[in-house]
Computed example of a mutant assay.
Amino acid sequence: MTVNKNIYPIFDRMLSRTDKENLLEQRGVMLWFTGLSGSGKSTVAIALERELHRRGLLCRILDGDNIRTGINANLGFSADDRKENIRRIAEVAKLFVDTGIITIAAFISPTEELRQMAAEIIGHDDFKEIYISTPIEECERRDVKGLYAKARRGEVKDFTGISAPFEAPACPALKLDTSHLSIEESVDQLLKLLGIEP
């Protein structure tokens, strides 16, 4: 009996990543923002998206608002659900990156294990880890929802930085402390990382 080694033959007929990147005149890449709640991940991501768009570069932000309300709406916040949340995000991100899109993920993703899983799914060559390293005191000061205060009172369980750990990346591609850097300065550093003149 002959075994078909290629059980997904459609992939052989689809346009390649290079075809898509040539069409867009850009290279797909994953910018994976990690950091505490309130550190500035989404704010920096939105500012970068606007600047890339202004320059004619196609970009997509993935964050809790557009993931937890859609593809991951069925997941809670248990350890297993958090892992599955990041796994699905990485799989979706890989599709965007393989289409030549500059993709930004803005998730706490608090452990090295979770971030390594994402990097392996997406591909280490395409994965740029960005650590938004804003100190917890500043994150708490910015917290308009009062989540840190609730976590300190024990009203919010497993809150990263208070009752659940956050493992800072050992060797991020870029480290940004938004308590010292302006949004514009943060975006400039990200552009340089992408090989784009600020």
Rank of each mutant, 00 (worst) to 15 (best):
M1C: 05
V3W: 07
K5W: 14
N6W: 00
I10C: 03
S16D: 07
R17M: 11
K20E: 08
E21W: 06
L23N: 08
R27W: 01
V29I: 15
V29G: 00
T34L: 05
G35D: 03
G35N: 03
G35K: 01
G38C: 02
T43K: 04
V44G: 01
L48T: 03
R50E: 14
R55G: 04
C59M: 04
L62N: 05
D63W: 07
D65F: 11
N74K: 13
G76C: 13
I86W: 03
D98G: 07
T99G: 15
G100N: 02
I101L: 12
I108L: 07
I108V: 15
L114D: 14
M117Q: 14
I121V: 14
I122N: 03
G123R: 08
G123C: 11
I130P: 08
I132K: 02
T134C: 08
I136N: 04
G146F: 11
Y148T: 00
Y148D: 01
G154Y: 06
G154W: 08
E155Q: 14
V156R: 10
V156L: 15
F159A: 02
P169W: 05
P172S: 08
A173R: 05
S179D: 10
L181W: 00
E185C: 08
S186V: 04
S186M: 05
D188H: 14
K192I: 13
L193Y: 11
G195P: 06
P198W: 06
